[in-house]
């Protein structure tokens, strides 16, 4: 860790970033705040509404359901992607050309535009023309993600696992690579078992990168919009309507700007709060080193 010196002039170095981000963040955010406390009937005429929309959103079953689905989805993909990513990273080759090949192939899903991911999974999972859909139905399981809520949910989860597990793999792999060979040799001399090596050498070394992985996966899965929108459109019914999808439905579909804005802010606050907790935990660990 570098010892940092106090220098207030450093603000000048931060200024360009500050201006660019503030322009993009503060003006739109204030617009949202503005909408969230007013009512409009069009023609740019606005009436003060106070906290009406906030109360309405916080009490609406629709919001509760979308939030519930969102939390469930995020929990499930974290529970699958983090362990799976660690297992794959542990089994990856350490040296040679194979490393590059593995890394490049694994990173591929991360670089595909999100709507293409959705479209790709759509044609992959459709029961009539898709490889996955055909295969599952051929095994005697009735599967049609466009009509069965359960199947739609499972397909969205599987798509996310496909799309993002590699991020966890790459992070965990980076953590593993930072372990000097001497550690393994010492463990070997001490006669440590595979589990002990994992528990006392590899896992502690991966702790920091895994915190980053959890933070990034949490944030991104909480904001997920394009992939499920293209794949299922939030359906069937509301089965895969996550917070962002619901928000866009209200804001652009029904043009209820007030409630949509209030919902946006509550939604943003939830992400902020949870991320802040992760971030503080992460930074506390970093400071201890």
């Amino acid at each position: 860790m570098i010892e940092r010196t106090t220098n207030q002039k450093a603000w000048w170095l931060v200024l360009p970033v500050l201006v660019l981000v503030a322009f993009n963040a503060i003006i739109p955010l204030m617009t949202v705040v503005n909408y969230s406390v007013q009512e409009t009937f069009g023609d740019n005429v606005f009436f003060w509404e106070g906290v009406t929309w906030y109360t309405e959103v916080l009490h609406s079953p629709r919001f509760h359901e979308a939030l519930g689905r969102q939390l469930m989805f995020t929990f499930q993909i974290l529970a699958i992607e983090i362990p799976l990513g660690v297992i794959v990273a542990l089994a990856m080759p350490r040296k040679g050309i194979l490393v590059s090949v593995c890394l490049v192939l694994m990173a591929l899903p991360l670089l595909i535009p999100w709507n293409v991911v959705g479209a790709m999974w759509n044609i992959f999972a459709l029961p009539d023309i898709g490889l996955l859909g055909r295969t599952i139905n051929a095994m005697g399981i009735d599967y049609n993600f466009t009509q069965q809520p359960g199947a739609a949910w499972a397909t969205v989860v599987l798509m996310d696992v496909w799309h993002w597990t590699s991020l966890v793999v790459l992070l965990a792999y980076a953590g593993l690579r930072s372990i000097p060979d001497a550690f393994y040799q010492a463990a070997h001399i001490d006669g440590a078992s595979g589990w002990q090596i994992f528990r006392y050498i590899q896992l502690p070394k991966m702790k920091r990168v895994l915190t980053i992985a959890v933070l990034l996966r949490f944030m991104d899965s909480f904001m997920i919009y394009t992939e499920p929108f293209v794949l299922t459109g939030g359906g069937p019914g509301n089965a895969t309507t996550f917070l962002s999808i619901d928000l866009v439905k209200i804001a652009l579909g029904q043009f209820d700007l007030g409630p949509a804005a209030a919902m946006s802010l509550i939604y943003f606050m939830i992400i902020l709060l949870l991320s802040w907790i992760f971030y503080t935990v992460m930074m506390r660990d970093e400071d201890q080193k």
Binding site: I2, R4, T5, T6, N7, Q8, K9, A10, W11, V14, V17, L18, V21, N24, A25, I27, P28, L29, T31, V32, M219, F222, M223, Y225, L243, S244, I245, L247, V248, A251, L252, L257, A260, S264, L265, Y267, F268, I271, L272, S275, W276, Y279
Partner: peptide, 28 residues
């Protein structure tokens, strides 16, 4: 390299923008 007034808050504020759902910002 430097410590300056509000550096930690600024850093976290920057990160919060990485957490802003694009759906929230689309219309504004």
């Amino acid at each position: 390299r430097y410590r300056f007034l509000g550096d930690k808050h600024l850093f976290f504020w920057l990160l919060t923008n990485r957490m802003a759902p694009p759906a929230v910002f689309a219309l504004p």
